[in-house]
């Protein structure tokens, strides 16, 4: 994993993120203990990815700064909820999406194949973090989204 749990919580805390709404996968799931130990970022566990976007919208309306964390498969599953919140309500939710099998260049996983085309089809700004050298881009990108008040996906290679 490109980020350890300690690193990601420190980055999100520095951005002023108050809540992390997530469904973990095998990679981002390793961050659980770090979120659980954080007093700055509250971890919210949900049952299905479609809950994440309206939940983040409610937190935003209430004055908090959430981030949604899930795998690309969850992004696909929750597309209609994302559409509704980002485009109908125009609430600028930021997210970290784990790109399943991105680091496996031989993979024929369709979740890998469709990750970028789906984001491009939605028209959601995104930043690929593909390796260790890209790490600073995650914080820079999310900060630019928060400052500009628009949605954005940090697509994190797994």
């Amino acid at each position: 994993m490109i980020f350890t749990g300690e690193e990601i919580v420190a980055e999100l805390s520095g951005l002023g993120i108050t809540h992390a709404i997530w469904i973990p996968d095998a990679c981002i799931g390793t961050w659980e203990w770090a979120f659980s130990a954080s007093s700055d970022v509250q971890l919210i566990r949900i049952c299905r990815e479609g809950e994440a976007w309206p939940l983040a919208a409610g937190l935003t309306l209430g004055g908090k700064v959430p981030v949604v964390i899930m795998q690309t498969t969850g992004l696909f599953e929750s597309g209609d909820a994302l559409r509704n919140i980002l485009f109908d309500l125009k609430i600028p939710v930021v997210s970290i999406i784990g790109a399943r099998n991105w680091l496996n260049t031989e993979s024929r996983d369709t979740a890998r194949k469709f990750a970028e085309p789906v984001l491009q089809a939605w028209g959601v700004p995104y930043q690929l973090i593909a390796n260790e050298h890209d790490k600073p881009r995650l914080t820079d990108f999310l900060r630019s989204c928060l400052d500009a008040g628009h949605a954005g996906v940090a697509l994190l290679a797994e």
Partner: peptide
Amino acid sequence: PSTMGGAIPLAMGIALAQ
């Protein structure tokens, strides 16, 4: 307009924030 099933999570977000 909403996504069906989205109202409870949205309200939950407001409840956690306030």
